[in-house]
Design a binder for these strands. Structure first.
Length: 276
DNA sequence: CTTGTGTCCTGTAGGC
DNA sequence: TGCCTACAGGACACAA
């Protein structure tokens, strides 16, 4: 679920609730969501540590602690974070980080695919290889057509698949790749290396704009509400989606139906008329 | 190195 | 109503 705009919104909204707070107690209800180290060390390593800064890289949320370790959280498909009082017990709670002000940061993950890690900076390359190999983010200044073209020109896989590659477009997932391809008027089935320079320029701009708008509108909360802000409210980018999960609806540009296909085992939505 | 496929896990929607 | 299947926004291991 959460892609860059959702994780960034969570980072912005959760920072004032967590900065300067000390973790007093960690309860792990579901051991397999602790990716590293083993659960006992994970719990002991967090006790009495203060959260001093909160960052993000791609879809990873990074909580920097007072002893220079980093609590890293990846929400995968269905994870949430909530900051709630000690008494509340939400469904699908997997890890609870009790704080020194009688609130708790709670990692909620129905599918239990998300992971939490406690690492030193030196451990990141061996423990979180994906984080280490991550490419540029579309919101970065130096994510531009030159950068994108340097990857696309040597990939013959479908452009949609390449956009989902975190080594190329860090933080981009299924929603924002479909929306950016629509905005750029590019068919998701096109081989990446078939895009000409003009098309790569369009796609680069479309990715940047789509991801920035996702952040501006606080992320995408679909009807299943798998993504919510830390206070339980919804994002608003779903109101602006042009093609994602719009199968059968009219294309906003040409009026013909949006179609759904499977690309690389993922649902893909696009307009077969407008996207060449 | 690249590419496609399967797997992790659980809940839900839709067909019959 | 109940059963069965397909599918869900991600990432990675693995084989070819």
């Amino acid at each position: 679920m959460p892609e860059l705009p959702e994780v960034e919104t969570i980072r912005q909204r959760i920072s004032p609730l967590l900065l300067g707070k000390t973790i007093t107690k960690v309860v792990v209800q579901r051991p397999d969501v602790v990716g590293f180290p083993e659960v006992a060390k994970f719990k002991a390593g967090l006790k009495d540590k203060t959260i001093v800064q909160i960052g993000r890289r791609g879809k990873y949320l990074l909580l920097f602690l007072s002893d220079n370790k980093i609590l890293i959280i990846h929400l995968r498909l269905s994870g949430h974070l909530r900051v709630i009082t000690d008494k509340e017990k939400p469904d699908y709670e997997r890890v609870r980080f009790g704080l020194n002000d009688r609130t708790a940061l709670v990692f909620i993950e129905p599918r239990a695919l998300g992971r939490v890690y406690l690492v030193t900076p030196a451990e990141i390359p061996s423990i979180l290889k994906g984080l280490t190999k991550m490419g540029r983010e579309p919101i970065e200044e130096n994510f531009n057509a030159n950068y994108l073209y340097s990857f696309l020109k040597r990939r013959k896989a479908k452009i949609k698949t390449v956009l989902l590659d975190q080594r190329v477009c860090a933080g981009v997932g299924n929603i924002y790749s479909d929306e950016a391809l629509f905005l750029a008027k590019i068919n998701p089935n096109r081989p990446a290396n078939s895009l000409n320079w003009t098309e790569v320029q369009r796609l680069s701009r479309a990715l940047k704009l789509t991801v920035k708008n996702g952040i501006k509108f606080l992320g995408t909360t679909m009807s299943d509400q798998r993504y919510l802000l830390p206070d339980g409210t919804k994002g608003r980018f779903q109101e602006r989606l042009k093609v994602f999960r719009c199968e059968g609806k009219s294309c906003p540009t040409c009026g013909k139906p949006i179609i759904r296909t499977r690309i690389g085992n993922r649902s893909s939505y696009f307009c077969p008329i407008c996207q060449i």
